[in-house]
Amino acid sequence: MANEDRRRPLRGKIILRGLMVCDTGMHIGAGGNNLDIGGIDSPVVRDPLTREPYVPGSSLKGKMRSLLERQLNLPFNRYGGNGVYRHECSNRKCLACRLFGAAGGRDGDNIPGRIIVRDMSMTKESKERLSEIETGLQYTEWKFENSLDRVTAAANPRQLERVPRGTEFDFEIIYTVESEDEEEIKKDLYNIVQLLRMVEDDTLGGHGSRGYGKVRFNLNIFEGRLIGFYSGDTGASKSLEVKTPEDCTGVVDEMAEFFG
C-alpha cells in the first residue's frame, strides 16, 4: 500500500458522556490470586487507592465489539488465547475494525481503533448512598450461590461480590474523527449508540445468565471538538444535550454535519 494511503488525518474528537445505571447486581471480577478463609471466592475489581469498585473500559468495549461482530455475522478468524476467538481484518471499510481496531500482523494492515472507552467510576451520589448501607463490605454486597452435582445432588457453595442494584457510574466514550464523509461519521456514531442499546438487552460482566449485569445507559451530552479547539479556537467546539433516547438521531446528524 502506498504511503499516502496509510495517512490518518485527525480532524477532531466527539465525546459522549452520561451515566451507566445497574438495574441488577453486577460482577466484574478482579481475578484475585488468594483464597482467604471465610473470604469471598470472587471479588470485584477495585481502585487500589480508594478501594472503590469501578468498571474497566475494556469490559464495555469488549462487549460492544463482540455484539457488533455477531450483528454483522463476521468470521472469527483471529485466536486471542484462552480459547477466545475474535474477528480482525485489514479492510478499512469493515465497520467493526474501523471502530475498534485490528492488528493485521506482519502481512496485514494495522487499523488503530477510532473509539476510546474510559474506565467508569461511581458517582458521588452512589458512593454516599452505598456508604450508608451495612453489607459487611465497602460499597458492595455478598451474593451466596450453590452449584449442585447433577448425580449426587451435593451442594458446592460459593460467595461472589457484586455492585448493588441502582449503583450509577459516569461513562465517557471518545470517537476520533478521521473522515470528512458525513455519512461515515453518522454510521460510526449510530453504531456506538446502537451498541449501547444492545448491551442494555444483554449483560455486562460475569454471570449474566443468572441475572447479573443488566445495565442502562443514559446518554446526556455529545461534545464535538474540531482540531482547532486544541489550539485555542473556542468556536471550534459544539455541545449537544440529549434529553431522551429519541433525541440521539437528531443529535448524531447535527454532530456529523458539524464535522462534514
Rank of each mutant, 00 (worst) to 15 (best):
I133W: 07
I133N: 09
E134T: 00
T135G: 05
Q138D: 14
Q138E: 14
Y139W: 01
T140F: 08
T140R: 03
T140M: 00
E141M: 12
K143E: 11
K143F: 15
K143W: 13
K143A: 15
F144C: 00
E145P: 03
E145N: 08
N146A: 05
S147T: 14
S147V: 11
L148K: 09
D149M: 05
D149L: 03
R150D: 00
R150L: 01
R150S: 03
A153Y: 11
N156I: 05
R158F: 14
R158A: 02
Q159C: 14
Q159Y: 12
L160N: 02
E161W: 06
E161C: 04
E161P: 01
R162I: 12
V163W: 06
P164E: 04
R165H: 06
R165I: 06
G166L: 02
G166Y: 08
T167G: 01
E168V: 11
F169T: 03
D170V: 13
F171I: 09
E172N: 13
T176G: 06
E178L: 07
E178V: 09
S179V: 01
E180D: 13
E180R: 14
E180S: 12
D181M: 08
D181S: 12
E182W: 11
E182P: 14
E183V: 06
E183K: 09
E184Q: 15
I185A: 04
I185N: 05
K187I: 07
D188L: 09
D188P: 09
V193R: 10
L195Y: 01
L195H: 01
L196C: 03
R197G: 08
M198E: 13
V199H: 07
E200A: 01
